[in-house]
């Protein structure tokens, strides 16, 4: 089962992976605003943590294959180009 999941991650294209990562990122941010005014809602906190976990998974696969989303993801093997020489978000081909 775990292997199948891994395989399906590998077969995902750039747009698909980014969409998954950003969907979870968005869910985190939306829940964050809710948690700001409902800090003791454990159900919301658990949902936040679930999305955070999923975001980290997709973002790290994305960074390995298509370039860093944050500077923290820059690693030796991909060089600085992994940050600076991939499409910037306002370009059509980045979306």
């Amino acid at each position: 089962m775990a292997e199948m999941r891994l395989q399906s991650l590998d077969s995902m294209g750039r747009a698909e992976l980014l969409c998954e990562a950003q969907s979870h990122e968005f869910a985190m941010r939306d829940l964050a605003l809710y948690l700001d005014t409902h800090p003791t809602d454990t159900e919301a906190l658990n949902a936040f943590l679930d999305h955070k976990k999923a975001y980290k998974k997709y973002a790290s696969v994305f960074a390995d294959r298509f370039g860093a989303l944050t500077m923290q993801q820059v690693e030796q093997e991909n060089g600085w180009a992994a940050w600076s020489n991939t499409p910037w978000p306002w370009e059509k081909e980045a979306n």
């Binding site: 969409c19 990122e25 941010r29 989303l69 944050t70 940050w83 306002w90 979306n95």
Partner: peptide, 14 residues
């Protein structure tokens, strides 16, 4: 502040 290299929601205008 930290920058994330992606839009919050995709913009792709034909």
């Amino acid at each position: 502040f930290q920058y994330e290299k992606a839009l919050q929601y995709p913009v792709k205008i034909a």
